[in-house]
Design a protein around this nucleic acid. Structure first.
Lengths: 140, 140
DNA sequence: TCCTTTGTAATGGTTGTTATTACGGTTACA
DNA sequence: TGTAACCGTAATAACAACCATTACAAAGGA
């Protein structure tokens, strides 16, 4: 479980954009809904734009729009856009290579953790932004 | 993906204990294999003991032992023992409740993330410490 | 030209993690 | 009955990640 809230803010942002279809929203407006600073939103939007999930219009009357229909954006797309998935080192210092366990533990653990992470991502990959928007609408 | 290495150190420690069956290992010895400070190991062992996965013998000739056979310890047991699973708040500040999305986003997201986390834990729950030890032995 | 808006750099505060020192309690053994 | 070898845990410092905020350059409409 990641320790930052970029993913939550990114999904929140995309849901707003998806519900106001075609209407560009400013970072300040989005920040008002998320309850944070507009610059935080712009950083998230910048990451989403690099992944080609949103586009931005600069200047007066500008703002951001979804680049794809919510039916074509998965939560995994969003997660990959905003969370650097550089898998952190298992151990902080490399373990003692003179010990059989020290030598063998890392590849073994890595394999298991990769399988576990793949299972987690499979759930996100099958959840569409459109479903999230539908659920939000349903609980009003 | 968690950002600390407690889980890796805990599995490493349990694998050592499981391979030296019956022989108590000192925190200093384990620290030599993990390549860290003995106090770090003792903290991990303390958490593992609270979860009744290991026992410790104090005093001279003391050390730690597995409390169960490696066939009866899953990686999920170990993870739960050393990682506080207090699910962090999705948003840092609660979102704006006057906005429909701000009101609805958190329960919806929480549900999806709980499902994703359950899928991840299912993999850890079906991986036994005994398998890890077997894999380490196999790649010597 | 002026105003609005994005894009991004720089900075400070907060929090989580690891390493390390220190010290008290426990136990085997001479 | 000492003493040495252990564990258990508190305290602290160093370090990194993250977020909020200020600041400012660049873009674009009126």
């Amino acid at each position: 479980m990641s320790k930052n809230c970029r993913f939550a803010v990114a999904v929140h942002t995309c849901a707003l954009l998806g519900m106001e279809d075609g209407q560009p929203l400013t970072s300040e407006w989005i920040a008002g809904s998320v309850n944070t600073n507009p610059v935080v939103i712009r950083r998230i939007l910048s990451a989403l734009a690099k992944a080609e999930l949103v586009t931005s219009i600069r200047g007066s009357n500008g703002g951001s729009l979804l680049a794809k229909a919510p039916e074509h954006i998965t939560l995994l797309d969003i997660q990959r856009a905003v969370d650097d998935d550089d898998t952190p080192a298992l151990h902080n210092q490399p373990p003692n290579q003179k010990c059989p366990v020290g030598r063998g533990i890392q590849p073994v653990l890595r394999r298991v953790l990769d399988r576990a992470e793949a299972a987690r991502e499979a759930v996100l990959a099958t959840t569409l932004l459109a479903e999230v928007i539908g659920n939000i609408r349903a609980c009003q």
